[in-house]
Simulated scan of single mutants.
Amino acid sequence: MRLSGKTAIITGGASGFGAGIVRKFVAEGASVMIADINGAAARALADELGVLAQQVDVSRDESVNAMAAAALMAFGRVDILVNNAGVTHMPAALDEISEADFDRVAAVNMKSVYLTARALVPHMKANRGGAILNIASTGGVSQRPRLTWYNASKGWMITATRGMAVELAPVGIRVNAINPVAGETPLLKSFMGEDTPEMRAKFLATIPLGRFSTPEDIGNAACFLCSDEAAMITGVALEVDGGRVI
């Protein structure tokens, strides 16, 4: 029970990597709030696991503040924040991505980290401790064509992680990131453009371990980085990618 007594908010926690993190945290003893724009899916998983659910749009300040307030009312304190909610645009030439798609990627992948920090860092500062985990991407360090603006948003997230880590270390708040490779999640088709055996084989050929990331892989790494076992680790962007970026 590596997270026994800890409380956690996990954004985008109703599916994909987020659900894997939720399941691992619950198994390790944490009290969890599943925060997701899909309120029905969040409630379904929360009912299954006996945890809290909160519908949230992480790109909107008032929605993020309501999420933080609900967690503090329920738990009394928030020890762990996992910024997992994310979106991508379909693969296309960088000059063909619509402004609406760019704005959506920027709002969900970048602005959300700023908004959750504004909502919860003051509380963590007052408690002189906490752990923040940002789910970035191998795309933030090893770019591929046709996903330029998504990759850029994840590179921003990695830079923000390191900046946050340096600034918040004196008050006992650790900030880390995970860089997954594409996995068996609802975003897989978006990354590949089309989900066919040929596209999967082409994508898997770039991963030395020969498989996609799973929600369990990301949950295990997240649990370690948010636990007291990682008390001396901050500012890290950990690749969980089967060797993809080597």
Rank of each mutant, 00 (worst) to 15 (best):
E184H: 09
A182D: 10
E216I: 04
S190Q: 14
T161W: 00
D195Q: 14
L209Y: 11
R200E: 15
P197C: 08
G219N: 03
V175S: 03
E229K: 12
F203K: 12
S227A: 09
I173Y: 05
F224P: 05
S213F: 08
S227L: 07
E167R: 02
P186Q: 10
A221I: 06
E229F: 15
G172K: 03
E216P: 03
V166Y: 12
G193S: 14
I178H: 11
P215F: 02
P208Q: 05
K202E: 13
P208S: 05
N220M: 10
R174M: 10
V171H: 06
G163W: 02
G172D: 04
L209H: 13
C226Y: 03
G219L: 04
I173L: 02
I207L: 09
I173T: 01
A169W: 05
K189W: 05
L168G: 04
R211F: 11
S227P: 12
R162P: 11
M164W: 05
F212G: 08
E229Y: 14
T161I: 06
V175C: 06
S213E: 13
E167D: 02
N220W: 08
V166H: 14
A177R: 01
C226W: 10
A169T: 01
L168F: 00
M192L: 15
V181S: 11
N220L: 13
F191N: 10
P208Y: 00
L168S: 04
T214C: 01
I218Q: 08
F224E: 04
V181E: 09
R200S: 14
P215S: 03
T161L: 02
I178P: 07
G193N: 13
A182L: 09
K189P: 08
T214P: 02
A165K: 00
V166E: 14
N220P: 03
D217W: 07
I218P: 06
A205F: 12
G163D: 01
E194V: 07
V175N: 02
V171D: 00
E194Y: 00
C223R: 02
R174Y: 07
P170F: 00
V166L: 15
P208L: 00
E229R: 12
L204A: 13
K202V: 15
A205W: 10
M199H: 15
C223Y: 04
N179Q: 13
G210L: 11
I218T: 03
G183A: 04
G193M: 13
I178N: 11
E198H: 07
T214Y: 01
L204C: 12
M164R: 03
A201P: 07
G163S: 06
N179C: 15
P208T: 07
E184C: 09
P180F: 11
A222M: 02
G219W: 07
M192F: 14
G183K: 00
G210C: 04
T159L: 04
A221K: 01
S227W: 01
M199E: 15
K202Q: 13
E198G: 10
T185C: 06
A221D: 03
F191I: 14
L209G: 09
A169E: 05
L225H: 04
L187P: 09
P208H: 01
F224R: 05
E229V: 14
